[in-house]
Structure formats: C-alpha cells, structure tokens
C-alpha cells in the first residue's frame, strides 16, 4: 500500500486554561489514503476541531501536542517553523466555517486568495480568477469584501482559497454548518466534485452525521477526545455498534432509510467536561447499556468480528 496522505498516531492535544490543563484530544490514530474522504463526527466539544487545528500546529503556543502527524510521510509536529510554514496550505489546507469571521473583513476576497499562493512562491496551476469560476462565484467577486458576500458565497470563496496551492489534503471543518439546507447540498456537491476531479484527500469534520452519508468513504466517531468507532462510511452509519454512535446516528434520519426515523432521537445528558472526565469509559454516565465494568475499564479501539475494517471501543463488542 502507498504511503497514506495523512497518518496520525497517538495524538494528544492538551491546552491550558485558567482552570487547569484541558485534554481535548486523548490518543487518536487516523489514516487517510490518497483520494479518500474520512468523515470525523461528534458533538461539539469532543475535540474534533482541536484535532484539525493540531494537524498543522495551529493551536496556541501554550498548547501541548504529542504523538505524530505524518503528512505525506513527514511529521508536522517536529518540523522547524520555516518547514511548517511551507507545508501549511501547500500540502494541507483548511475549508473553515464561513459563518465565522475566518475572512479578513478589510481585505478583498481576491487578495486573500492571492496571498496564499504568494506565501508559497506564487507558482500554481490555477489562477485566482479560474478558482472563483470553479467554485461558481465568478471573477467579479475577487474585488468584493467579505461583508458583500452571502453565507453560501463566503463558503465558496473559502473553498476557492483552500484550493489555491493545490494541496494533497483538504480539511473541511464544519463547512456546511449555519447554511440553509439548499445551500448546504450545493456546497457538499461542489466539494465532492472538486475532490473527485483533483484526486484530493479530505478530512470532513461535522457534528451532523447525515452530511457524511454522501461524502465519506470512511467515518470515525469521536467522543471525549477519542475515536470510539471507525468503519466504512455508509456501513457505519446504517449499522453503528457503539452505543454512542447509535444514539448519534439516530438523531439524524438517514435519507432513503425510513427505519431510521423510528429510532429514539437525541441523547440524555451533556457531553462530559474534558477537565473532569468520568472514570472508565467516559460515555458510561449517558450509556443505556452500561455495565459495572464500564465504570472502571476504558476499552481501546479494537476490531470487531464480521464487519470489514470496523473498529469499536466498547466492552460489548470485540474480543474481551
């Protein structure tokens, strides 16, 4: 097998707060092959965005990152600042969530895209004008400021920006959150097309499992800073094993599967506080099928008999 585009091993991210150290990501292993899309899902606060930021070391300098992040075979966590800058955007870029202030309000859209290529020597296959056409914005938008674009347009501009340096990997961090359903579908389709045409790999982060059913080749579910289930996309969504994945899948109807609508929705309780995680399996206080062992034992991710490539971190599944 060829070197995966991204290979994350035992990643821990701990940031400092006034209340103490917050372990946001606690030992995550993921891999993304060339051309593959990995969907990463979980409730807000489960550490999925922190993980995304840690890949390119975009967390604050006081935050501690350990483990390894091999991007095209090189570990971003041990790179010197100059090397790291060269890798950022050129090998992996990020499609941020457009609803937030991720675009500089006082700089023109075109300028913000150009800036990315200039930072990497200026040479590239596609020009800014072409990129804007590609994402369906039109060249004229290059002279606009962010406040002159709608939410969907901003999201398109961000996609154009992410493509500016022809990266191997695109990290899409909640790219459709805060958009209405119609626009959401358009953006998803755009991402899918671009990915296919350019042979890109993608890490698609979302709290909304339903958007993954179309886009993700494989899906990883995160809870309290860990991946608790991983497997092939549609397979996992239809037939999740971990009680948390089940509950999460149940809260979003899968289009074309009427049975999913009849399942109980939502989850009792709140996600755990990362500073004060429950003992054993962090999910046990909210789990309907928890047994005594769950209070003391935190089961690692392990292969499950039957399903292909399925791994689950639950005492009820796999070899005890």
């Amino acid at each position: 097998m060829a070197t995966p585009v991204l290979r994350v091993r035992d990643l821990h991210v701990t940031y400092q707060s006034s209340l103490g150290a917050v372990p946001a990501v606690r030992g995550v292993d993921i891999e993304i092959a060339r051309g593959e899309t990995l969907g990463l899902a979980g409730e807000s606060g489960c550490g999925k965005s922190t993980l995304a930021m840690a890949l390119l070391r975009l967390v604050s300098p006081t935050t501690q990152i350990t483990g390894s992040v091999l991007l095209a075979g090189k570990d971003t966590l041990t790179m010197k600042p100059g090397e790291l800058r060269a890798v950022r955007w050129a090998q992996a870029s990020i499609v941020f969530q457009g609803a937030q202030h991720v675009l500089n309000p006082v700089q023109r859209i075109g300028r913000q895209i150009d800036e990315a290529t200039e930072a990497h020597g200026g040479a590239r296959a596609t020009g800014t004008a072409e990129l804007l056409e590609l994402v369906g914005l039109g060249v004229r938008r290059a002279d606009d400021y962010p406040h002159e674009l709608s939410g969907g347009q901003k999201q398109r501009a961000l996609i154009a920006m992410a493509l500016a340096c022809d990266p191997l990997l695109i990290v899409a961090d909640e790219p459709t959150t805060a958009l209405d359903v119609m626009i959401q579908a358009q953006i998803l389709q755009l991402l899918e097309e671009i990915k296919r045409e350019r042979g890109l790999s993608m890490l698609f982060i979302t709290h909304d499992l339903s958007v993954l059913s179309h886009t993700a080749d494989r899906v990883a579910i995160m809870y309290a800073g860990r991946v608790i289930e991983v497997g092939a996309g549609k397979d996992l969504l239809r037939d999740s094993q971990h009680p948390y994945s089940k509950a999460l899948a149940a809260s979003f109807p899968i289009i074309g599967d009427p049975s999913s609508r009849r399942q109980p929705r939502g989850l009792a309780g709140d996600p755990p506080n990362p500073i004060d995680l429950p003992s054993g399996c962090p999910f046990h206080p909210r789990c309907a099928v928890a047994i005594d062992t769950c209070r003391s034992v935190d089961v690692k991710l392990r292969s499950v008999g039957g399903a292909i490539n399925r791994q689950v971190a639950c005492v009820h599944f796999g070899d005890a």
């Binding site: 930021m53 390119l56 975009l58 800058r85 060269a86 890798v87 950022r88 955007w89 050129a90 870029s93 990020i94 941020f96 937030q100 202030h101 991720v102 675009l103 500089n104 309000p105 006082v106 700089q107 800036e115 990315a116 930072a119 990497h120 920006m161 340096c165």
Partner: peptide, 23 residues
C-alpha cells in the same frame, strides 16, 4: 478567526500581524 486563517495559509508571523491584525 481570520488570524488563524492567515497562519494556516503559511504566512509569517510578521505578515499575519501587519496584513491582518493591524488593519
């Protein structure tokens, strides 16, 4: 957030400051 964007694009710290933070 746009400072994170600027950093992610591979800009130098001084460029992030002068082009994005200061204006």
């Amino acid at each position: 957030d746009y400072l994170v964007t600027a950093r992610a694009k591979g800009l130098r710290d001084s460029e992030v400051m002068s082009r994005h933070a200061v204006p």
